[in-house]
Amino acid sequence: MAGAEQTTGEYIQHHLQNLQVCRVDGDWVWNQCAGNFYTINVDSMFFSIVLGVAFLALFRKVAKRATSGVPGRLQAMVETLVEFVDTSVKDTFHGENKLLAPLGLTIFVWVFLMNLMDLIPVDWIPGLAHAIGIPYLKVVPTTDVNITFAMSISVFILIIFYSIKAKGIGGFTKELTLQPFNHPLAIPFNLVLEGVALLAKPVSLALRLFGNLYAGELIFILIALLGIWQLPLHFLWAVFHILIIVLQAFIFMMLTIVYLALAQEQH
């Protein structure tokens, strides 16, 4: 535990607190940012960008030296991922779209790497940070709603963009107002129904990922409170969690592809 004088509640609270910096009266202030929108979760941003850059640097390195001959192990691994995403996209969406597959790959690997941070024992990195004077550190970016919502909202914007691109503003409006009941009187009802269905997409996307990872992280923290018994329990939960982090990354990617495919396909 980070400090012997902490109570259990404080310990958990401490672990769930982001390292934040915010703008207050023209000054940058650390960690007194509750309710202030002009706040940046430095730890989430840091780890998310580091992992994203690591992912792209690795893949770019492989892509630059990619040979059509016999691939090395690293290239074979990257190719497996690329083909996996490509197959998923082609199975779902039959049109031509240059963005969809790379978007899926980025989301899958990036989310997976951010989730993977969850398997690092909960006190290691925050403990290290504490030793060099950083008071709070949350190492799993996907346990931060801002991160998951930022991704799902980006996907949501793409959904609307591609809907309008494929069907035109008129077609998109019709889809929102004349379904499921094709009658002028039913327009408000349809609008509410379709609006909720549309908005549910980014919200469910973000909350599913956030909820799973947040809960997983919380259980790791609770296990960390158990003294010596945490070792077998931690192992068991980590093994189970391997499944969850891959699954959640896959679900996020797959739903993104499905939503974007639906947005572009004519009914």
């Binding site: 979760n41 941003m45 790379p102 980025t106 931060d144």
Partner: peptide
């Protein structure tokens, strides 16, 4: 919610763009 939302969105935009431009085409080519 706070500014991280915007930051992460920009990061995602950049990463997806990079992936689409410099990672995906050579891999598919190979």
């Amino acid at each position: 919610f706070n500014l991280t939302l915007i930051g992460q969105s920009i990061a995602m935009l950049v990463f997806v763009w990079f992936c689409m431009k410099y990672v995906w085409p050579p891999m598919m080519q190979a």
